[in-house]
Design a protein around this nucleic acid. Structure first.
Lengths: 156, 156
DNA sequence: AATGAAACGTTAAGATC
DNA sequence: GATCTTAACGTTTCATT
C-alpha cells in the first residue's frame, strides 16, 4: 500500500498511543476527525494496521525470565505425510510461552523467544513440550540478562 | 503486583484488542464499566500495562527485511570515562531500525532485531551506524526467512 | 454483631464518534 | 444523536475484633 506523509504521521502517533482519540489524532496530523477516521479505517482494511494491543510488562506479572532458543530440526523424512516444518509451525502457535518464532538463514532451524516464570518453568517447557515434539532434534538456549530496548514501533 | 482472575481476564482481553471499549470489556469480564475502568487504571499505574500500541505490518509499509544481529563488543577499556556498554545501550535507543536489543548469557554481547527496507538499507545500517560505534568489535547476522509467530501477548 | 477497608453498581455529565 | 468515558455517590462484601 502507498502511504503519504499524513498516513505516516497517523501510524507514528497510533504506534506510540494506540488508544488516542480521533480528535487528538486529528489535531496531531492536521486533519479533521472524520478525515482521520477514514484514513485509519483504510489502513486497517489494507492490513497495514493489524490490530491494537495493551502492552504488558512480563516481569510485573510474574514472568521474569526470557530465553532465546535455537531449535535444530530433524532432517525431513521423505515418507512423512506432511512437512515436519509445517507441523512444528502449527505447534508453536499453540504454545503460549512462545512470543516469537522465526526461521533464519544460515542454519536450517528456528529461533524462538520464550517468556516464562522462572527456570523451573523454562525447564518444563523445554523437556515436556519442545523436545517432545518429533521434529525437534536439539536446542541451544541463551537467557536474557538485560532488556536494553524492546519496542513494537516500526519506523514508517 | 498481585493479580486475581478478573485482572487476568482484563489483561487477556486488552492484549488482544487494545481499543476495546470499557462497556465491551466489562461485559467480557463480568463487571460494570466503572469497576472495570478502576481496575485498568490500577494496572496502568502499577506498571503492569505499560502502554497501548497499534501494531503495524512492517512488510506492508516497505520494511520487508528483518535481521537478527549478534554484536560482539570491544573489551571494556579501563580508562574509559563511562562504560562502553551503557554508551552502546544509549545509542541503540536512538536507532529506529532496532526493534529489540538484549544482552544474553553465554557470550558477552548483544542480540539485536533490526527491521529494514531491504539489503541496501541493512548494509548501510551495519556499515555506517553499527560498526561505526566505537564499542562494537564485529557482528554476525542471520536474516529472517519466515515469521512463523510474532505476538505481543504475554500469557498471564 | 460492629467496624473499617476494599471493591462493586448506578447514575449522570461531559467527551467522543 | 448515539455511544463511550469518567467521576461521584451509595451499597455490598468480607476480614477483624
Amino acid at each position: 500500500m502507498k502511504l503519504d506523509a499524513l498516513d505516516r504521521r497517523i501510524l507514528d502517533a497510533l504506534q506510540s498511543d494506540g488508544r488516542m482519540t480521533y480528535d487528538e489524532l486529528a489535531a496531531r496530523v492536521g486533519l479533521s476527525a472524520s478525515a482521520t477516521l477514514r484514513r485509519v479505517k483504510r489502513l486497517e482494511e489494507a492490513g497495514v494496521i493489524t490490530g491494537y494491543a495493551a502492552l504488558v510488562d512480563a516481569a510485573r506479572v510474574g514472568l521474569g525470565l526470557t530465553a532465546y532458543i535455537n531449535v535444530h530440526m530433524e532432517k525431513q523424512s521423505e515418507t512423512a505425510k506432511r512437512s515436519p516444518m509445517d507441523d512444528f509451525a502449527a505447534a508453536v502457535q499453540s504454545w503460549p510461552e512462545v512470543a516469537e518464532c522465526v526461521s533464519l538463514t544460515g542454519e536450517m532451524d528456528y529461533l524462538l523467544r520464550v517468556v516464562v516464570r522462572d527456570m523451573a518453568h523454562y525447564s518444563r517447557f523445554v523437556m515436556d513440550t519442545l523436545l517432545r515434539h518429533p521434529s525437534v532434534k536439539d536446542v541451544r538456549t541463551s537467557f536474557v540478562l538485560d532488556r536494553v530496548k524492546a519496542t513494537t514501533v516500526v519506523p514508517v
